[in-house]
Amino acid sequence: MKLRTNSVSWREIDGETVILDLSSSTYLKTNAAGSTIMRLLSEERTTAELADGLVEEYGIPADQATADTETFVAMLRERNLLDTADS
């Protein structure tokens, strides 16, 4: 999976990420951990790779990172912010 690039723009500001989805005309934001995942999702990633990013950045247990990543990815998917050709 990776972030949809068509009609979606995002920018990191003070550790948070602001996302503009032109297709739905909405602004969204993520916190710091969300920004870590957003950064990784600029390229094709697996859930495991995203969870590893949280482990490396925050030193949290792998199972917590996996659960949190799956929850966050579900939020992104619900907002149609992912390219889901092969997730």
Binding site: I19, Y27, G34
Partner: peptide, 15 residues
């Protein structure tokens, strides 16, 4: 940095 689980929030519409 204290860890907070990743969250996605809607800020509002462009309009």
């Amino acid at each position: 940095m204290a860890y907070q689980p990743p969250v996605l929030e809607e800020v509002g519409s462009v309009r």
